[in-house]
Design a protein around this nucleic acid. Structure first.
Length: 218
DNA sequence: GCCAACGTTGGC
DNA sequence: GCCAACGTTGGC
C-alpha cells in the first residue's frame, strides 16, 4: 500500500456515462466507430507506458492543497504513493490497464513550466480508490457506493528524474514536426487528448521522449 | 438518444 | 486570470 494521498486526477462531479463499463474502448456498442483506427479485432492495443499528470504548485481546491509534484513523491515513504483522485472514466480505464513494472512519465501540469520531470513505475495494479467514499476528501464522490465502487487507483514509485526537464513546449514542437513527417510524436495523447490526466504512450513515443534527455533543448 | 448548458482542465 | 477544448448532465 502506499502512504500518501494527494495526487491529481481530473476532479469532477460525475455520473455514469461513457465507460462505466469496464473497458472504455469499443465496449458496449455505444461508441462503436469514431476512435477505431485500431484493429477490427476489438483487442485493446497493448500500451506499455504511461504519462501521469500532477500539479507541483500549491493550489487550493475545496480548502485542500492539491500540490503533489515529483519532489513530493520522492519524499513519500519508500518513494511510493497511491495515485488517488482520478475522476474521469478514460483515465481510470487506463489505470486499470497498468501492469506492475511498467514505466510512466511524471508530468507537471498547471504550473509555471509544464512538462516531464521524471520517471515512475507502477508497483501495484488498480484497486479501489478509498477517497471516493471520504466526505472530507477533495475528490469525494457521493454517487459511488462501497458495494460498487466507481474509481480505482494504482501505486507508483519514484524511479528517477529525467536527466533534464523536458518542457511541454519542446514536446509540442516535435509533435508539430512529426505530424508532417509521421514521426514518433505525431499522435501523442498529450496533444490529441490534452485534458486526459492519465495517458497511454506507445513504446515508440516513450523511447523517443527518453532520447530527448541527452539532446539539447529544441 | 440528441444536444444545449454547464463545469473542469490546463496552457498561456 | 482568461478562455478554448471537451467531458458530463439532464431536459426533452
Amino acid at each position: 500500500m502506499a502512504p500518501k494521498k494527494r495526487s491529481r486526477g481530473n476532479a469532477r462531479s460525475n455520473k455514469q456515462n461513457l465507460s462505466e463499463v469496464e473497458d472504455g474502448e469499443g465496449g458496449s456498442g455505444k461508441k462503436s466507430e469514431s476512435q477505431n483506427s485500431r484493429s477490427s479485432s476489438l483487442e485493446k492495443p497493448a500500451y506499455t507506458n504511461w504519462l501521469m499528470k500532477s500539479e507541483p504548485e500549491s493550489r487550493v481546491e475545496n480548502g485542500v492543497d492539491v500540490k503533489f509534484g515529483i519532489e513530493d513523491l520522492k519524499a513519500c515513504p519508500n518513494q511510493t504513493s497511491c495515485w488517488d483522485g482520478v475522476r474521469n472514466y478514460q483515465a481510470r480505464n487506463f489505470m486499470r490497464d497498468m501492469k506492475v513494472g511498467q514505466q510512466a512519465f511524471f508530468y507537471h501540469s498547471n504550473c509555471k513550466e509544464p512538462g516531464i520531470a521524471g520517471i515512475i513505475k507502477i508497483v501495484k495494479e488498480a484497486y479501489v480508490d478509498h477517497t471516493q467514499f471520504d466526505k472530507k476528501d477533495v475528490h469525494y464522490d457521493p454517487s459511488s457506493k462501497p458495494e460498487n465502487p466507481k474509481w480505482s487507483m494504482v501505486d507508483v514509485q519514484f524511479e528517477r528524474m529525467t536527466r533534464r526537464f523536458i518542457p511541454l513546449t519542446e514536446l509540442k514542437k516535435y509533435h508539430l514536426k512529426h505530424k508532417g513527417s509521421g514521426g514518433a510524436l505525431s499522435n501523442t495523447a498529450l496533444f490529441t487528448r490534452a485534458r486526459l490526466s492519465v495517458q497511454p504512450l506507445t513504446a515508440e513515443e516513450f523511447d523517443f521522449v527518453l532520447s530527448l534527455e541527452d539532446t539539447d533543448p529544441l
